[in-house]
Design a protein around this nucleic acid. Structure first.
Lengths: 151, 151
DNA sequence: GTACCTGCAAAACCTTTGCAGCATC
DNA sequence: GATGCTGCAAAGGTTTTGCAGGTAC
């Protein structure tokens, strides 16, 4: 696809994402809008199939390939990110420029808890970059354990 | 498979893992031994194909399905773990009971650096478990960025 | 001798792509 | 009207399983 770098979102909202799409010369279709709404409403990362199932417009389910391509696009635009939950397929969530989420996953029931507060890693990210000579350092942090209900 | 819980390894060595297999009534074949040696020698996580390629015994390459099943077994025994490097397949590494590794992955060339020292998360693991009511908390932490050579 | 393992082969899954028609701008 | 998007269909890869024969204990 080969998208140019762009100024990142400053806020996470339907309007802001639509504006970003427009500014890149990309189309805002009903299907895309619905997928974005699905992602904005989600309280945990969703698989492509879940996104597809929740993005029905006027009784019409979007094609799986379309969902796949839209998510690839959003990932490239750094509006969404892929999350690994030790499952057999990829999960996606929107990337909030003002907030960072880590995940707490129950190894028994698979329930995913978003950990909104106090990421223990963010502060050391730059230090790690410096130490190893890396730039543009991001991270992905998942905790696994048994949740209260599964004990 | 349904393995019972067991006392974890206290040290990471060929002998210790073999003893664990024996104690669980599992067989120690030449193939398994070679796979374990491959994993012990590795300096970064390996894909199933890489494990297969490096585990040739007397000119005979083990079957891919065998490697797959051995790694599944080691994972269940908590001797090895799966690592996600944002690639299209799973990677595996041994789980050292005395040492924890996080990963630093170059988004350009894919090189993986093991971060041996000072995991920034280990200290808060119990606190997080307590806070969310989780037990047996482990974590998986990956950093991504551009390595010095790729800048 | 009795499990347990392995190799072979095929199935199951998830991901990815090509192409023709359609919708957005 | 041009460009990009979608659905359909098929291909590509990785993961997973069944089964018969072989091997560790």
């Amino acid at each position: 696809m080969g998208l140019e770098p762009h100024s990142p979102l400053t806020e996470l909202s339907l309007e802001a994402i639509i504006a970003l799409l427009h500014s890149r010369g990309l189309r805002v279709t009903k299907g895309r809008q619905k997928i974005l709404e699905t992602l904005l409403e989600a309280t945990e990362p969703l698989s492509l199939e879940e996104i597809q199932r929740r993005s029905v417009v006027d009784g019409v389910t979007p094609d799986y390939a379309t969902v796949f391509r839209v998510m690839g696009l959003l990932e490239e635009l750094q509006v969404a990110q892929r999350v690994h939950l030790n499952r057999s397929c990829s999960y996606f969530e929107l990337l909030d420029p003002q907030q960072h989420y880590d995940h707490l996953i129950c190894t028994q029931c698979g329930r995913v808890t978003l950990m909104v507060d106090s990421c223990p890693v963010e502060k050391v990210e730059q230090a790690i970059g410096r130490r190893y000579g890396f730039t543009d350092v991001r991270h992905s942090l998942e905790f696994f354990g048994k949740c209260p209900e599964c004990r």
